[in-house]
């Protein structure tokens, strides 16, 4: 328990006040919000043209950070498609050498999902898997092989469950 308390204390990702929106989104994606809260944030995110434009902007920023040249609309489409396919790719964020853009990317990615939720109308399941980003193979962590290897030892008959990445930034202190 001491260990647990310690890890809780030292390993919490650094919260930054101006990322409250991102935190809510993160909680939403993690399914940590109550139904009420989730409904409210989804509503809030998709309510106005201004919000929609902001989401589109986040997506564009995310694209730029990932070095993709696709139009935001294309990216959105791909996120939507990926949501349907629930693929098994973890996409790492760029190295934390400049942390702000990484956080922005996280926010953008989360917004992308909320966008998907909002666009496809109300769903029962708020905890939608965060879709894979179509990245060059060298820049992605494929979860599937690790899962398959792990399942040599763990209980597993059913095919690997869909993975999504939820918290893009994990503070590591040594």
């Amino acid at each position: 328990m001491t260990l647990h308390a310690l890890t809780q204390q030292t390993m919490q990702p650094q919260a930054e006040p101006e990322d409250l929106q991102g935190q809510t989104l993160s909680a939403l994606i993690d399914g940590e919000l109550s139904d009420d809260m989730a409904q409210r944030s989804i509503k809030q995110l998709g309510q106005s043209a201004g919000e929609r434009a902001r989401i589109a902007e986040y997506l564009a920023i995310g694209d730029a950070l990932r070095g993709l040249n696709a139009q935001p609309s294309d990216f959105t489409r791909r996120v939507m498609a990926a949501l349907e396919n629930e693929p098994v790719v973890l996409a790492p964020v760029p190295k934390a050498s400049n942390r702000r853009p990484a956080l922005w990317l996280a926010a953008a990615t989360m917004a992308a999902i909320t966008w998907g939720l909002w666009q496809s109308g109300p769903r029962d399941d708020v905890n939608v898997p965060l879709a894979a980003l179509q990245q060059p193979a060298s820049q992605s962590v494929e979860a599937q092989p690790y899962l398959a290897a792990h399942q040599d030892f763990a209980q597993a008959v059913i095919s690997a469950p869909e993975m999504h990445f939820s918290k893009a930034s994990l503070e590591v202190r040594q």
């Binding site: 934390a96 990484a102 905890n127 469950p161 993975m163 994990l170 590591v172």
Partner: peptide, 10 residues
């Protein structure tokens, strides 16, 4: 490598 956390749906 940046630290990335993944989680299955449930």
């Amino acid at each position: 490598i940046a630290s990335v956390r993944g989680q299955s749906k449930q």
